[in-house]
């Protein structure tokens, strides 16, 4: 069975185009998703850290909801329901109501929210592991609480949490494959299309698997370089093992 695998379809220029186009979409989704996810992580962690009224309980509810429900159902809900909630606009030429958020935007937002909720907790745990003395040092230098957060706690926390944040990014990349289920043409979607035309399911899935593996491996290697470059002399190395 293994030796009768047929990879000739890979030579078909149409399928090559499909895979490349899909790969582009996947990279775009994960790139934008990661940036948004980090923003949500930092802002959310700050909201909780500074105990901001109203925003803090809402952030906690958001974390509890997104971390304890399937990202796929979250995505389906965003994709199908946001327009029901009034998130739509009227096309000037045809006069029709059109959802404000494209499938692509829904996927990016859903990933940013799901992995962002994880990011908030990762950054918070990083902040908690900043040594007390370092913070006290900042206080004695006359820093305000905001300054301590901005210049001491957050930078150290972000460096300390590079390994955990890396697995969060990898999780985001893996989760992005569900974009295909709301008709967004990522690499998973095109792979499914190819299987429907060629009936070579196993072969296509093996190639797809390898594609994701290459992407995640590159991200992990990149993060390792970053961690090395940002090592704080004398401490934090233990967290990067």
């Amino acid at each position: 069975m293994l030796f009768s695998l047929d990879f000739e379809w890979l030579a078909d220029p149409l399928y090559q185009d499909w895979l490349l186009e899909g790969l582009g979409t996947t990279l775009a989704i994960t790139g934008v998703g990661t940036i948004l996810m980090l923003i949500i992580g930092v802002v959310g962690a700050a909201i909780i850290h500074f105990n901001i009224p109203v925003a803090k309980p809402l952030t906690i509810i958001m974390i509890d909801l997104f971390r304890n429900t399937p990202p796929l159902v979250q995505l389906l809900f965003l994709y199908f329901m946001l327009s029901d909630l009034g998130m739509s606009y009227t096309d000037a030429t045809t006069g029709e109501r059109i959802p404000l958020l494209s499938g692509f935007a829904c996927v990016v937002i859903s990933l940013a929210l799901y992995n962002g909720s994880i990011a908030i907790e990762v950054i918070r745990s990083g902040i908690n592991s900043v040594p007390r003395q370092t913070v006290e040092g900042g206080i004695s230098l006359g820093y305000s609480r905001a300054q301590i957060f901005r210049w001491i706690e957050l930078p150290i926390a972000l460096r300390l949490t590079i390994p955990n944040m890396t697995s969060n990014v990898v999780s985001l990349i893996k989760t992005s494959a569900q974009a295909a289920l709301v008709a967004v043409t990522d690499v998973m979607f095109y792979a499914t299309q190819i299987t429907l035309e060629t009936f070579l399911n196993l072969e296509v899935m093996i190639v797809l698997w390898l594609i994701y593996l290459v992407i995640t491996t590159l991200v992990v290697l990149l993060a390792k370089q970053l961690a090395k470059a940002l090592t704080i002399p004398g401490f934090g190395a233990g967290a990067m093992k």
């Binding site: 893996k174 989760t175 494959a177 998973m188 499914t192 399911n201 899935m205 093996i206 994701y212 992990v220």
Partner: peptide
């Protein structure tokens, strides 16, 4: 590491056919 970096959806599809 190989298992950990595979998207679950792809693994599920692959198992379906494998």
């Amino acid at each position: 590491n190989l298992l950990r970096s595979s998207p679950w959806l792809v693994v599920l599809y692959a198992m379906l056919y494998l």
